[in-house]
C-alpha cells in the first residue's frame, strides 16, 4: 500500500450551530489525520457541505464515515472515487519582483498556469490560481526561485460529475 494516500469525503450536514465543532472534535478524538477541510454553503440554505481530505486507505475512510454518521446533523457521507468528482482548490501567492526582469517571467508562467494577477506593487506581485492540488503545487514550485513571500491555499472543494 502506498504511503500518504489521501482520500476525499464529501459530507452533507444540516446547517446548525456547532456542527463544525463536532466534526473537528471527532477528527481529533479518533485521531484521523486530515490534509484539508473546507466548509461552505450549498444550493440549499438549510444544508452545508464539508469537503474533507483525509490521510489513509479505504478502511480509514470507511471508519471515518461511520463515525461521522454518529453526528446527528450529518445527513450524507460520500466517499467518492477520484475520477467521479471534479475537485478544485484556490491558491494565493505573493511573489517578490525585486529581481530585474522577474515581472515579465512571472506573468508568462502565470499565463501558462492560467493564474490571475490580482495586485502589482514595486516589491511583489500577488497571484490567484485555481485547480487541483498538483497544479497549484506546480505553480508554487515555479514561483520559488523568485522568492515566495507568502503562499496560502484553501484545501479542496468538490462536486460530483
Amino acid at each position: 500500500m502506498k504511503q500518504n494516500k489521501f482520500s476525499t469525503l464529501i459530507v452533507t450536514v444540516q446547517n446548525k450551530p456547532g456542527v463544525l465543532y463536532r466534526i473537528s472534535g471527532l477528527i481529533r478524538k479518533r485521531r484521523f489525520n486530515i490534509a484539508s477541510l473546507t466548509v461552505s454553503a450549498t444550493e440549499d440554505p438549510d444544508m452545508s457541505r464539508f469537503t474533507i481530505v483525509v490521510e489513509g486507505d479505504k478502511e480509514t475512510v470507511e471508519k471515518m464515515a461511520k463515525q461521522l454518521y454518529r453526528i446527528i446533523e450529518v445527513i450524507k457521507v460520500n466517499e467518492p472515487e477520484e475520477d467521479s468528482i471534479v475537485a478544485r482548490e484556490l491558491g494565493l501567492i505573493k511573489v517578490s519582483t525585486t529581481k530585474t526582469g522577474s515581472k515579465g517571467e512571472i506573468s508568462l508562467i502565470a499565463d501558462h498556469f492560467r493564474a490571475k494577477v490580482i495586485q502589482v506593487t514595486p516589491e511583489y506581485m500577488m497571484l490567484e490560481i485555481t485547480g487541483n492540488e498538483e497544479k497549484i503545487q506546480g505553480f508554487y514550485k515555479n514561483m520559488k526561485k523568485y522568492g515566495v513571500m507568502e503562499f496560502v491555499r484553501t484545501g479542496r472543494t468538490a462536486l460530483f460529475k
Binding site: 478502511e59 470507511e62 471508519k63 461511520k66 463515525q67 454518521y69 454518529r70
Partner: peptide
C-alpha cells in the same frame, strides 16, 4: 445497532 462499532 451502531455501525461505527463494526470493524472498529
Amino acid at each position: 445497532i451502531d455501525p461505527a462499532e463494526l470493524g472498529k
